[in-house]
Amino acid sequence: MGALLLLPLLLLLPWAAGGAAVCGRCPGPPRNGSVVARYCASRAGAESEGRCCRERGARPERLLGLDLSNCSLRSLPPGLAEAAAAVVLDLTENPLAALPSGSFLGFTHLQQLAVPLALECPGGSSAWEEVTTLQSSRLCQGQRNPCNGSGELAWSCPENAACAPDGPGLVQCLCDSPFHGYKCLREGTFPVLLFCGILGAVTLGLSLLLWGTQRRKAKTP
């Protein structure tokens, strides 16, 4: 039973660590001269922790930048989503083959992204205010809001929904109150109490079933 109570805490550990795993993906601090190192040095109240730049004294601690340059990455690390609050991200000097669509889902604060020259900026150049190249890298700067764009960036949501940015060139459609459900077609308050009641009953039932199973096993000689 104790293990069941610990399960939610274990699931919350990656969130509570605030990107601790991805900060140690490569050894050492942010590399001298990287966009992350320059940003961290220029921002008051910021300090380095592993390959990350954090906001000192913030609760919860906010990850401002992540330097994964020269980490021998052939694909984006699984824990990259831990750095979704980052303003600056450096992926240069890695043999990355591609940046899959949706790799930066949720990176709504990202304003500077450095990638190998062979790769395009996520979302395309139209998703950024400025794209510059320097030697073997490409710098994507100033993430644009796709909901306010035109042409390639134009995006429309269904009726009763509002557009919200969700990363470079990515959007999500949020239902206006009191609408909810598929394409925001259902009107009225979401049945929170009913949903929580059913979820609680299922969780309790599974917990009791597992507890009973473990109890029987413990009694078996």
Rank of each mutant, 00 (worst) to 15 (best):
A86L: 00
S177T: 11
G212M: 12
R59K: 09
E129N: 14
R38Y: 06
L63I: 02
L204H: 05
E130Y: 10
G65S: 11
L80S: 01
S125C: 08
S150L: 14
C26V: 13
G79T: 06
P116N: 04
L204Y: 07
R38C: 06
V88I: 10
F104S: 02
F104G: 00
M1K: 12
W128K: 02
V115S: 03
P122G: 07
P146C: 09
L66Y: 01
S136F: 10
R38M: 11
P146G: 08
R51S: 02
Y182I: 15
P60K: 05
S137L: 13
W128D: 00
P122M: 05
L91D: 01
G188W: 00
F107W: 06
R138K: 15
A3H: 10
A3R: 14
E93P: 00
L99F: 00
P95F: 01
N70K: 10
F195N: 07
E55W: 05
E93T: 06
R54G: 05
L6H: 02
L5A: 09
A41V: 09
R25S: 01
V192H: 15
L105N: 07
L210W: 08
S101E: 11
A201G: 12
T213G: 12
G212Q: 13
L9M: 08
A201Y: 04
A86C: 07
N148M: 14
S72E: 12
L6C: 12
G205M: 06
P30Q: 06
A118G: 11
E159M: 09
L208V: 09
L63P: 04
V115N: 01
A86Q: 00
R38N: 10
T189K: 13
E82W: 02
Q135Y: 14
C52Y: 01
M1I: 12
A44E: 12
R54Q: 13
L209I: 02
A84P: 03
G151H: 04
A97Y: 07
L89I: 07
L91S: 04
V35D: 05
T189P: 10
S48N: 12
F107E: 05
Q112P: 00
S42Q: 13
P29D: 08
C163D: 04
Q135G: 05
A218Q: 14
R56C: 02
S126Q: 13
A218Y: 09
L4E: 10
S72Q: 15
A154G: 08
D67M: 00
L7S: 07
L105M: 09
